[in-house]
Design a protein around this nucleic acid. Structure first.
Lengths: 99, 99
DNA sequence: GTTATAGGCAACCCGCTACTTGCCTGTCAA
DNA sequence: TTGACAGGCAAGTAGCGGGTTGCCTATAAC
């Protein structure tokens, strides 16, 4: 009967490039689109176009994992990991050693 | 440079039916494939075929979220939420009120 | 034995999604 | 004002993934 809330969240986390973007934004918060593109290429070897990264950021923003702040012609992207809390609230993590 | 470990985990969580299967197995652990099929139909209104559910369970097992135990012609499925811990370890959750 | 049950395997179809391409808008510097 | 820079929008393409179909194996009940 439950409505499976948070579909956007899992959809956002489902792509490897988007997960790398989260890693990158956590390492250095508040980057612009061009900065993210450059650092993804430099540090992770990802050769994605600007438009591809832009679409990924839109998905992350819709999931609430990224918030944006416009300033002039720049748009800064900030991470917000709080939506991840709903995952461990939905399926409480067992105590014990990892597998 | 990080290798994005846990791709199987996020792939498994990316599908709504698989998330519902996790819900169902947490509610009643150790079900067989046919039990899961029946209860998904009854309680969640999902009309998926047996083969579809079987493939979903294989994905969940590959992600380490479900372990199986054979006994005669039955195969019991057990949840293991410990892989979820890697998510909050990768992206620590901020303190503060939810959005 | 025979039959029914529980599950597995492989091929195929289709819709979604990531990515590209091309062009457009808005902002700042020279 | 003109150019460079940061970003947005929309249509088209290709591949992947979820679902189905059909047939098969193995265990248990009769």
């Amino acid at each position: 009967m439950s409505v499976d809330s948070g579909a956007d969240l899992f959809k956002a986390l489902g792509d490897a490039t988007r997960r790398t973007i989260l890693d990158e934004l956590i390492d250095r918060d508040g980057q612009t689109l061009f900065e993210i593109c450059g650092r993804l290429t430099m540090r992770y070897g990802l050769a994605s176009s600007r438009q591809a990264i832009s679409q990924h950021l839109a998905v992350l923003e819709q999931a609430g994992l990224v918030h944006t702040r416009r300033q002039g012609r720049y748009k800064f992207h900030h991470v917000d990991t709080r939506p991840l809390r709903s995952i461990v609230e939905r399926w409480p993590i067992d105590r014990g050693d990892p597998p």
